[in-house]
């Protein structure tokens, strides 16, 4: 098992390097530069800026320097648009915020989605199931960026229950976490329901009933584990969905997380920042996918670890 985990984690390195390289060149080969929009900048200042950020070197030299900086010093370079801040500093500030948002959202999605799905499967085709299914479908369909303003209007601006911007206390976190989590919770509920329905019909659950176990034990000890495997596989894509969702959530709630900087970096063509944030996103995504694989192997003994 430990060897499986190590191998799975090691396999990330080449993929990550490839992705990093891809992003680096994609960004630089595209037309338009970081200082295009500043029309008023005189040519000699522009030249000085480009020299400062080593943009006048050939691309492959830039790449070599940038990669050496990253690997040897762990430095992602300066940003172009936030004077006197390095990419590392921005990440150090924004990453914890985004992780906090993401983890709470994920926990909340599971805590809401799994019970909803189990109830649906256990009461199949009766009203609790129909209700849970309909709620899940609506939750799945309403985009985060529509849900969030509506909830802000209701809880923030009409009822005055909750603050609607920033991320300073748990009260600030309620709305953004809920909005980020809801579509994922809906997915989890649907997957749980389908998975449980499949497992509940299986022969081994009948065996468990034939042993005289109570319905509760049958579900908790025998059915749930197999029924939740589809949910576990979904956590990878689900996490990536949360990440994308955080782009709008952070914009709407004015949360200083990575998503905010990411969108701005694109609009500003802030090469180093885009590359740096892409790397962090890549690490998060691939890491979470690896974790999901490991969790799956741990939950399902039939998975071949020697692969």
């Amino acid at each position: 098992m430990i060897r499986f985990v190590l191998r799975r984690l090691l396999s990330l390195v080449p993929t990550l390097l490839l992705a990093v390289t891809l992003v680096f060149f994609l960004v630089r080969l595209a037309p338009g530069g970081p200082f295009d929009q500043e029309r008023s900048v005189p040519p000699e200042v522009l030249a000085a800026l480009e020299a400062k950020y080593r943009l006048s070197d050939p691309v492959w030299v830039q790449y070599k320097d940038w990669l050496a900086d990253l690997l040897l010093r762990g430095s992602l370079g300066p940003t172009f648009k936030y004077p006197n801040r390095t990419v590392n500093e921005i990440i150090a500030l924004s990453l914890p915020v985004s992780i906090q948002l993401g983890l709470w959202a994920m926990l909340f999605a599971l805590a809401l989605g799994v019970p909803l799905g189990v109830v649906g499967a256990m009461r199949q085709n009766r009203w609790p199931d129909a209700l849970a299914t309909a709620i899940a479908l609506v939750g799945l369909s309403v985009p985060r960026f529509v849900l969030a303003p509506l909830l802000i209007m209701l809880f923030g601006l009409t009822l005055y229950w909750l603050p609607v911007a920033r991320f300073d206390s748990w009260r600030h976190m309620v709305l953004p976490v809920f909005c980020a989590a809801l579509p994922m919770a809906a997915h989890v509920a649907r997957l749980t329901r389908a998975g449980m329905l499949e497992v509940v019909r299986s022969d081994f659950v009948r065996t468990a009933r034939a042993k005289g176990l109570s319905e509760r034990s049958v579900v908790l000890r025998h059915a749930l584990r197999g029924g939740l495997l589809p949910v576990v596989s979904y956590l990878g894509p689900g996490f990536s969905g949360l990440l994308v969702g955080s782009l709008v959530i952070e914009k709407i709630f004015d949360i200083p997380g990575m998503g905010r900087y990411f969108v701005e970096a694109f609009q500003n063509r802030d090469y180093n920042l885009i590359a740096g944030l892409s790397i962090v996103y890549g690490v998060l995504l691939m890491g979470s996918n690896a974790l999901v694989d490991i969790a799956y192997a741990w939950l399902d003994p039939r998975v071949e670890l020697g692969r």
Partner: peptide, 22 residues
């Protein structure tokens, strides 16, 4: 491709290639 958040990819492509000189 499945493990990749493709929206991010679309954003990348849009930001860099949805311009006149392409």
């Amino acid at each position: 491709l499945y493990t990749f958040p493709l929206i991010i990819f679309v954003i990348l492509v849009l930001a860099f290639f949805a311009h006149q000189d392409t």
